[in-house]
Design a protein around this nucleic acid. Structure first.
Lengths: 141, 141
DNA sequence: AGAATATATTCGCCTTAACGTATACATGGA
DNA sequence: TCCATGTATACGTTAAGGCGAATATATTCT
């Protein structure tokens, strides 16, 4: 349980989790929305992966992340509460609206070059169905 | 919010909070129950103090700690959930039963030399009434 | 095969934190 | 006033985390 809290003890990671709430999101969107360097985003995603909180799925050259419902009901309860409370935060809502705008806004590039849009995923009220997940070095099982 | 999680991201601190759930507890009991060095216990209590999660009250040469209900409802909700979930953990229950035994067991010393017993305090379901709290260097609040 | 793109990892530096040990501070009693 | 006790803080060491910069890996396109 202390490990779960360690994973939550960083503002950037909380923002990432908030963006992933109910959606599977491509890394490129995280970088765009949070306005931070790609290695930084990737490191924080790796931290969440190692903590077993998120899972990655490759889709061509893009990688999508989604939240994994923890096995232990206690951890799941905590995470669910945290996501709910994050949704009440102004800046977190701003992140989400930027994500929506980024996904709907026209790009200069042709449609085929655009990163895949966020995909709705099973949330805490339904059961997860792991599919096509990739495993990096040192991930949690 | 990230700061709250940082405060919860340590097993010793979780054990301390569990022991303080609904009670005001003297430092000497923490040292006895957790079986760890007094400076270590004191440092973790100081960490919780700086995070604004607990408050200290001096009573002679003893100092009692209790949980403070966070101002922000979100943080209060999280902390309340955490305390509830900790109560379901085996080792946390063992800590509590050791605390009960320590408080009720006869001592070699005369009664007047014993540390004050844990005192029930207002919990999350009622409102806090701060009284006689002491402030150390660099505390929150 | 080679270039371009998306993502992950490594490296070096810095900050924070956890710990044991030693010491300081506060209180009460002789 | 001096001493014993309870608690807090300081010091030095070690480990972990966060960051920017550079580099590695994987995939697609030509």
């Amino acid at each position: 349980m202390a490990l779960l809290f360690a994973a939550l003890a960083d503002r950037t990671r909380l923002r990432l989790l908030n963006l992933m709430n109910g959606k599977e999101v491509c890394v490129c969107y995280f970088v765009e929305i949070l306005g931070q360097s790609q290695p930084k985003i990737s490191r924080h995603l790796a931290y969440l992966r190692r903590a077993g909180i998120v899972a990655a799925r490759r889709d061509g050259k893009w990688i999508h992340y989604k939240i994994v419902v923890p096995k232990r009901p206690g951890a799941a309860r905590i995470l669910s509460d945290v996501l709910c409370l994050l949704g009440e935060d102004k800046s977190m809502q701003a992140d989400l609206s930027r994500l929506n705008k980024a996904c709907c806004a026209p790009r200069k590039l042709p449609v085929l070059d655009r990163a895949p849009l966020p995909i709705p995923v099973e949330s805490f009220t339904s059961v997860a169905a792991p599919r096509g997940e990739i495993v990096h070095r040192g991930d949690a099982g």
